[in-house]
Amino acid sequence: MVTTQATGPDAQSRHLTINGTAVNLSVDGDTPLLSVLRERMDLKGSRIGCTEGYCGACTVLVDGKPVQSCNTPVWSVAGKTVTTIEGADRHPVLAGVQKVFVELQAAQCGYCTNGIMMTLAGLLAQSPRPDRAHILAHLDERHLCRCGVHVRVLKAIDRLLAQPEGASA
C-alpha cells in the first residue's frame, strides 16, 4: 500500500488501485488523475499533452475503459482500478498492443503513442471486440498525432484485429 501526504483544502483519503497496487491518496478531489499519476506516483508514461481533453496523450484505463486522465478528477476514480502503460505486464492485451507497436515501429516521437496504445488496449479487451470502424471513430474523437504515424497505427490495429480474440503477447 502506497500512501501519499495530504495537501489542498478538501484533501481527504481516497483508495484506488494503480497497476495492481492499492494506493491511499490524500489529495484534493478535483486534482486531475494525470497529476496524481505523474507527480505523486512518478508514473510518467501518461503524457501531458493539452490537459483539456483533445489530444489523448494522457489516456489510461479506469476499470478497463480508456479515459483521458487530464480531465478526470481523482474523486471520480475512488475505489476503481487504474492501469497505465507502466502496468502493461499485468494487462495481457495492453502488452500485446505494445509488442505490435514496437515491432511495427508505430511511433516517431512517441509522445502520443502511449495514450493511443491505452485506448486500443481498452477497446480490444472488450467483448465483443469492436470492429475497425468503431476503433477509428474512437481514435478520431480522442487522439491526435502530429508526427503523422497514423498509417503505422492503422497497420498495428489491423494486425491486432487479425489475432484471435483474447490473444495476448
Binding site: R47, I85, G110, Y111
Partner: peptide, 9 residues
C-alpha cells in the same frame, strides 16, 4: 518511451 518516462517533461 513506449513503456514509461523518456521525455524532458
Amino acid at each position: 518511451k513506449l513503456s514509461g518516462a523518456g521525455f524532458i517533461q
